[in-house]
Amino acid sequence: MITVQDLHKSFGDNEVLKGIHCEVEEKEVVCVIGPSGSGKSTFLRCLNLLEDITSGDVIVDGYNLKDKATDINMIRTEVGMVFQQFNLFPHKTVIENVMLAPRKVRKISADEARKRGEALLEKVGLAEKANQYPSQLSGGQQQRVAIARALAMEPKLMLFDEPTSALDPELVGEVLEVMKQLAKEGMTMVVVTHEMGFAREVADRVFFMDEGIIMEENTPEMIFTNPASERTKNFLNKVL
């Protein structure tokens, strides 16, 4: 589903990604952990070209993102993204948030989009909030709407950029629950997270990133119980 080869990314003189190699298989759940400033979010944002790539190759669903012939808008319809700050559209109701992209990009009818949107809100447990505005919801509810909004495009792959970091602790669980459900249904997911419990329980593989590279990748059991690198060990000691 994703192949990344020697990905570099610089902001001016500051090289943030220093040669990333990785593969993500279909239906796989990968959690990306690591200290802040290690390039986790930048790496994730390169996977749908929210950051342009300085050098290297990123191949998503068979399309090389660097290829000029690749239609990035088409790729993005296949790649859902969930942000730390939710980024719901505040001037639209919950159901309108979910319906917008299917209507305007996929060009499906309003009825169809509404039906699909209502089913997705049901799925994230927010059917009764359909006609409210984002500002009337709690953070956890907003993030669940953001997940439903991304799912409305029926993506093949979902990216999560620290989806619970902006939430009050008591609201983290409801969002992780929705993500767990999604993983169970076989969605391919790349999740940048500080939730080690989630990574341990749900991930098929964990990437530990530091200083702009993937230092270590392994199954959660191996990473959490028997980390190979000293840096991974240090990091886990601090966060666990």
């Binding site: 808008n73 700050q85 001037h91 305007k104 909004r149």
Partner: peptide, 29 residues
């Protein structure tokens, strides 16, 4: 907020659509 443009683009809306349906209505207010 820059996140609004990113959210629109990440859903597959092009720049023009994102301006029209997401940025403009909020900016107009």
């Amino acid at each position: 907020d820059k996140g609004q443009m990113e959210a629109g683009r990440s859903l597959g809306l092009n720049k023009h659509q994102t301006m029209r349906y997401i940025i403009w209505p909020q900016a107009f207010k």
